[in-house]
């Protein structure tokens, strides 16, 4: 990877590029916050960032450190509460959701609860938090994973915390989840994936600069589909990097 930027900066810029202007994004702690802030300051000034504990439409001038901190509603249009935000998502108002994952499978199902058996677990992770709700209700979910490897990209997640396409086409609807929702993109330090519309399986569509298809396949613990045209993902522009470093995270909390 180009030494002009690091992997986290690349992930942020790639995630930001996926957000459209004039839409809504359910934003969690970490990379999604930086991506939303960057999108707002570049191509998507009218992006409305929504935070689970009540912030809607914050300016994001200063980077929040927690999903309920005062920066999540600084110069916002509304400061309500978690029921309002979650019900807004449940009513279909929120376009993009952002999720992280300790493990993910080929249908985009996510584990953030335990490694090993449920009880007692080998490793107890934080749990769902708002992730299950975001994954259930937002129209398009973008999953960000900083380390693309076979520990994280697994044939079967140890615990299905947040729904992807469950066990394939139609499974979300059969379970009672809102139709036409689900995982949309997976962004990692190696590549960009989508989900093939008919099989709902994860598919490689873009490589980060300098990464090969073989490298991605070797670091994925399940059969990854390959798109007919796999593109090379754009490098961050000098302007994106400047905004990120000077305006969004000058204290280097994340980058």
């Amino acid at each position: 990877m180009n030494s002009k930027y690091n992997e986290v900066e690349f992930l942020i810029c790639l995630a930001a590029s996926l957000m459209e202007d004039g839409t809504t994004a359910f934003v969690g702690t970490g990379i999604p916050m930086l991506a939303a802030a960057l999108a707002k300051k570049t191509h998507a000034p009218n992006l409305v960032a929504v935070f689970e504990f009540g912030g809607t439409g914050a300016s994001l001038e200063n980077l929040p450190l927690a999903v309920g901190d005062s920066r999540t509603f600084h110069r916002a249009v509304a400061a309500s509460g978690i029921c309002d935000i979650m019900e807004t998502a449940q009513r279909g108002f929120i376009e993009y959701g952002f999720l992280g994952a300790a493990q993910i499978d080929m249908y985009g199902n996510i584990n953030t609860t335990v490694i090993g058996n449920y009880w007692p677990p080998k490793v107890r992770l934080p749990g769902s938090g708002g992730a299950n709700d975001v994954g259930s209700h937002c129209w398009k979910n973008i999953i960000i994973i900083r380390q693309h490897d076979t520990k994280r990209f697994v044939p079967k997640v140890d615990f299905l915390t947040t729904p992807g396409y469950l066990n394939g086409p139609g499974a979300r609807e059969n379970a009672g989840l809102p139709p036409n929702t689900g995982p949309y993109r997976v962004v990692t330090n190696l590549a960009l994936m989508d989900f093939e519309p008919n099989s709902k399986r994860m598919r490689l569509i873009g490589l980060n600069p300098g990464v090969t298809v073989e490298q991605v396949l070797a670091n994925t613990g399940f059969d990854l589909l390959l798109a007919d045209n796999i593109v090379i993902n754009s490098e961050p522009t000098a302007e994106q990097l400047r905004i990120l470093r000077e305006e969004i995270d000058p204290e280097h909390y994340y980058i």
Partner: peptide
């Protein structure tokens, strides 16, 4: 509610 459906959660 429509959360938690289809999952181990």
């Amino acid at each position: 509610v429509r959360s938690m459906l289809g999952t181990d959660t």
